[in-house]
Write a protein that binds this DNA or RNA. Sequence first.
RNA 1: CGGAGCGUGGCGCAGCCCGGUAGCGCACCACAAUGGGGUUGUGGGGGUCGCAGGUUCAAAUCCUGUCGCUCCGACCA
Length: 488
Amino acid sequence: MSKGLPDRSNDFSAWYTQVVNRAGLADHGPVKGTMVIKPYGYQLWENIRDVFDKMIKETGHVNAYFPLFIPKSFLAKEAEHVEGFAKECAVVTHTRLKSDPEKGIVVDPESELEEEIIVRPTSETVIWSMYKKWIQSYRDLPVLINQWANVVRWEMRTRLFLRTSEFLWQEGHTAHATSEEAEKETLDILELYRQLAEDYLAIPVITGLKTDSEKFAGAERTYCIEAMMGDKRALQAGTSHNLGQNFAKAFDVTFQTQDNKEELVWATSWGVSTRLIGAIILTHGDDKGLRLPPKIAPIQLVIIPITKSEDQVNELKAYLEPITKNLKESGIRMHEDWTNNSPGFKFNEWEMKGVPLRMEVGPRDVKEQKVVLVKRDGKEKLFMSKNNILDPIQKLLKDIQSDLFDRARDFRDSNTHRVKDYNEFKSVISRGGFVRCGWNGNPETEASIKEETKATIRCIPFNEEPKGLSCIFSGEEAKHEVVFAKAY
RNA sequence: CGGAGCGUGGCGCAGCCCGGUAGCGCACCACAAUGGGGUUGUGGGGGUCGCAGGUUCAAAUCCUGUCGCUCCGACCA
């Protein structure tokens, strides 16, 4: 078995695949692009979920659950939105199997459904069919519902976490009395996404608006957070849509205003998915494997005991007991590795799994009443007195969290370029990285550039400064300053 | 859907041309030693060779059919 990982600069995607596998995050399911999220990967997801769940509850949202199955007729109600997903829907057509003497188990043709059922690719339609029942008056608004669920999109090319046929996500679906309120909600959520990405996942993101060609089909406007991965490609990490009155129209959801008029409801929807785990791997991973931000790492501190004899094992356990008790009580997520592997093996293994901090404890430390701490990054061994190690550990975790963010931000910034002309644009794009430049606002320009370079407009950043810029493609006066990149 | 390739213990492969007792590495299990950067030794378990037919005394190997998967091109959080 090869011990090292494939060279990241040479074969980034082979590196990614192996990290996912060897860190024990996920595996392929038996049906084509499906994914089994293994316990270690799932704990990571749970931690992300818990952080965001808390955020949205603090801002007045509540969780609910809507069905996996959607009547096919619902997708006809909103033509634009359908276009986005129709090509990748799983459809239920029958309800029974039966045994066949020749072929084993077959679909029972007798059980064909009158109306086929769609497995949700996203839940706008089911949810708005219910909102129609629930919303009568302005007093019923706003509705601020979120659900944690799985969705299915029958993708052709899949990669674990980044694009799978079924994935886990949260989808928020809100209903409001005014356009302004819906817009505010859309932006407030985007800000929560930014915080989730930057403050917890340590992934620096650009916030901005999608162009029409990149926006969600059913939306008026799509806002997003975009991040740069370790191979300098862009990854859309979360989206927040202002749906205007599109779904209210499709499902005829109206409400009575204070002055007794009937009006259509305003809507938003927003989501982040298990793709965030892919983003963490691609942003922070290095030659030794995964690196996890302490705030969401399933294990923040791994303890590697080093022993020779049985006697030493008992001595060490007694030595560790008060130390670990204190750390556990203080909320440090930790794990002691008592497996029979050699210490060197364990070091590599836990580095592969991205655990931020390692503690080594052996006979020498017992004698000196110390422990050894090593950061996932550094080779440096920090010798600490066994008493009062909580503070230094908390400080180290904090440092690791901010180091990860700083490093990723520096990497992104040093690979974000401003270019003089289209030739320079093309050469930067081919080398990889973000280009900030002017755009004339024309979708055809965008399409031409995509055609020639494979780069797309990732977003129109909120901090754009189009004044004085000219369009990189046409030379015309720029309508927007945009971020171009090749994307996942 | 178009192009290429692959199905043989859990994983990665060899064997197939030229039919004749299923093999290797890793992983796994047991015991012993080792243990501060991927540790050794000894012993051991596990495969109807994708599936279905056919040829043959004999099929992983030859023939026919079938199913599945992976990789590369048009879509997507």
